[in-house]
Nucleic acid binder design. Structure first.
Lengths: 126, 126
DNA sequence: TCAAACCCTCACATCGGTGTGAAGGTCAAG
DNA sequence: CTTGACCTTCACACCGATGTGAGGGTTTGA
């Protein structure tokens, strides 16, 4: 698929798809005319990237994480230097922190909304 | 406590504490000499702020969320305009998305690390 | 064959969070 | 009284993600 379709299906500006490629997060081969040609799987991949970016991870880290997600079960034990492993462990910890922070805050919002709801519908269907 | 202590106890540059105040996330009263004077609770508050920032939320949103977290059980039903409520619901959804994305990715990393570990210690204590 | 709708690269701009430092006031200890 | 460690405000700089648009090629359909 070409960049326009990928853009539409992922809700991502073309500009950013090119940027992700430049950052090494996304690969596309090229049609003879130079147009990018994306395989189907890119849709999910782009959504992953956007999700992680929205969660505060920089492209540099996402680049290291993506292979772990994509390799469908088949780990290439080829590359992982002890250094890479350390980075991954580090980043996993950071992600756990984020998750906990978000969970706490989300629950607080839920409680708040719930309380407001109760206060607004004072002693209704009870 | 003064800004230096708060900075040290939260691992946050003074610069940012002032920035958070400027953004309306943090309040300090002033000593007669103009120095900021923070109450004890600010330590937790700052950590919350940093956690949410690291999770990709902008100060504008954090500002709306913090009151829900701080109000210890006692909701001020005073302010919440229907508009504010809508924003909160929206943001809660976004946070849920983030949480799910992070969970998926973290689990993928865990699986990966686990697999690498198994591959590196080939048929050990078994 | 021409217009519209794609695509390309390149480059400059914006925005939010953060770094850094200048210029100066306050306070405690020697 | 001075020195050093704090604090103040202000301003400019940086970095990563994103917006925008110029200048130009390709494809499709009227």
């Amino acid at each position: 698929m070409r960049i326009g379709e990928l853009s539409e299906r992922t809700g991502t500006p073309r500009r950013l798809l090119r940027y992700y490629e430049e950052q090494g997060l996304l690969a596309a081969d090229r049609a003879p005319n130079g147009y990018r040609d994306y395989p189907e799987g890119c849709v999910d991949r782009v959504l992953q990237i956007r999700g992680l970016l929205a969660s505060g991870l920089p492209t540099r880290i996402i680049k290291q994480i993506l292979p772990c997600i994509n390799d469908p079960r088949a780990i290439h034990v080829s590359d992982p230097t002890p250094e890479t492993i350390a980075t991954l462990e580090d980043e996993r910890r950071r992600m756990t922190d984020r998750i906990e922070c978000l969970l706490r805050s989300r629950d607080a919002i839920s409680n708040y909304l719930e309380a407001v709801r109760r206060a607004q519908r004072p002693t209704a269907a009870r």
